[in-house]
Write a protein that binds this DNA or RNA. Structure first.
Length: 275
DNA sequence: CCTTGAACCTGCGGGC
DNA sequence: TGCCCGCAGGTTCAAG
């Protein structure tokens, strides 16, 4: 489910309901996600006030009183459910917090590729899950020149480079293909072969693609539910992702959208438009 | 260094 | 209808 736009949507939705509230209790039903939950998780959350909720890369950051931060990663299949009253008890409802005024937020994750961790606010940037992350796509300090320097270190395919969280944070498999399509760049091109103008265009198009997805509330596939409790199915349009065999929405050529596998992940592109 | 491939885990849809 | 296979939005680790 979640790439940067979806995680952003989740963070905003959670913030809307939870900021300013106090945690009455936290529930841990199954602690063996990709990483084991930290020791004493529920105890350490209890009684804290939720000050702010934002995002770094694909992590939701819940900033709590007394200098504690809760990190939540949704993996491939994770989602956050908001509600009132008792938290869900389904077999994949692994973790939940309940606020004093009767709201709850629950992490469901069938594949258990997600994770939950705690960090001290003071050294949040040095937390082991966050320390190695590259710049945020919307970081004003990330200009075309800096992006080009980063890409110049990579000999592998540009599509694979975009998925490297140490190179640029938050881009996932959908928006990597979508941004390359918009920039008319083949996913197979070596990252260090892009011209300065191509890099500039790619950065702009990546930002545009991500912005549009955030604006539409985050894109969804089958199991995404908006944390604000509205129906989770608002459709986001993809130009090429999962469109193998369909005509190109830009050049309308008879050449169909192709699917290839790079570093074990599917890439989609138009062989006519993208070079 | 850098790159690829497999592994982690569950569920769903397509083909037979 | 049911079974088997491939595939899925992410990350990490081993091996080349």
């Amino acid at each position: 489910m979640p790439e940067l736009p979806e995680v952003e949507t989740v963070a905003r939705g959670l913030a809307k309901v939870l900021v300013g509230k106090r945690i009455a209790r936290a529930l841990v039903r199954r602690a063996d996600l990709r990483l084991p939950f930290p020791k004493g998780l529920a105890q350490r959350l209890k009684g804290r006030t939720i000050l702010k909720i934002d995002r770094r890369a694909k992590y939701v950051l819940v900033h709590l009183s007394e200098g504690l931060a809760l990190l939540i990663h949704l993996g491939m299949s994770g989602r956050m459910l908001l509600g009132t009253g008792a938290a869900p008890k389904g077999k994949h409802a692994h973790f939940a917090i309940e606020t004093e005024d009767g709201a709850h937020a629950c992490l469901e994750d069938p594949r258990r590729f997600g994770c939950v961790d705690l960090a001290n606010e003071i050294d949040l940037d040095r937390h082991r899950l966050l320390a190695g992350l590259g710049p945020e796509p919307f970081d004003p300090a990330l200009d075309a020149k800096t992006f080009r320097e980063r890409l110049a270190r990579k000999r592998g395919p540009i599509k694979v480079a975009l998925l490297d969280q140490a190179l640029i944070a938050g881009v996932g498999n959908i928006y990597a293909s979508e941004s390359l399509f918009r920039s008319k760049i083949l996913p197979t091109r070596p990252a260090n072969s892009l011209s300065p103008s191509e890099v500039k265009a790619l950065l702009a198009d990546l930002r545009a693609v991500l912005s549009e997805a955030i604006a539409s509330g985050g894109s969804t596939l089958r199991d995404h539910v908006r944390p604000d409790g509205e129906l989770g199915y608002f459709q986001h349009h993809f130009a090429v992702y999962d469109k193998e065999g369909e005509p190109c929405p830009r050049c309308h050529s008879k050449a169909e959208i192709l699917r290839i596998v790079q570093a074990g992940r599917s890439s989609f592109y138009c062989q006519r438009c993208q070079r």
